[in-house]
Nucleic acid binder design. Structure first.
Lengths: 100, 100
DNA sequence: TAAATATTTGGCTAAAATGCCAAATACGGT
DNA sequence: ACCGTATTTGGCATTTTAGCCAAATATTTA
């Protein structure tokens, strides 16, 4: 594996890492239906305002979403639009809950 | 968000978490071209045999790959075939490396 | 059955991710 | 300028993840 390949893989990993959290995955799924502001997520997710804000920052740094400030609110929208499709595919292939 | 929705999201998150590591992402990309055995990855990834084995276990538990023992080797193959497509899409939308 | 190869498992330390609180910042209205 | 709402940032304690080594297991060959 070359150095160049390694860099590319690590860049992609950053994006996937950003998705790899229930709250963030939920946020992305919501954004698939259109932009939302931070406070709308705080209501749905039961977490601190600052926690939600940090999750959104992770998504933004990964390039998954973009943000736009309008008035005192910040609106987020999905940038990587292939994600919802992928999430749905995963849902269809989910391993069956193991019988214990 | 209902309890049912939460369970579903967490199940999907497990799959994505499994992808969220450079070595594991690399393995999945390789498996897109056909099955491979553990030792083949050990050569390519510079990590301990046991480390690679554990990464493969994570992928298997997530339902991303399946394994089959033949002789003294274990061959892994990709189960969630929508993944390579998604990885490619991410590659195309990667945020540009920030100019510092 | 002993030796060699391929792989997994247990355990332990180091590193990274999470989430809360408190404080800072930004903006609009009074 | 002051207050209230929306959001971000800093800091810290807790949890999770990673990766190595050593040991265990499995299978083929001598």
């Amino acid at each position: 594996m070359t150095e160049e390949q390694r860099r590319l893989i690590e860049a992609k990993t950053l994006v996937i890492k950003a998705l790899a959290h229930p709250t963030r995955l939920y946020i992305v799924e919501e954004l698939a239906h259109g932009e939302k502001c931070v406070c709308e997520f705080v209501d749905a997710v039961k977490a601190d305002f600052s926690t939600v804000s940090k999750h959104l920052l992770v998504l933004k740094n990964a390039g998954l979403v973009t943000d736009e400030k309008r008035g005192q609110q910040v609106f987020y929208r999905l940038r990587m639009c292939c994600v919802p499709n992928f999430i749905e595919c995963i849902g269809n292939l989910l391993p069956l809950p193991e019988k214990s």
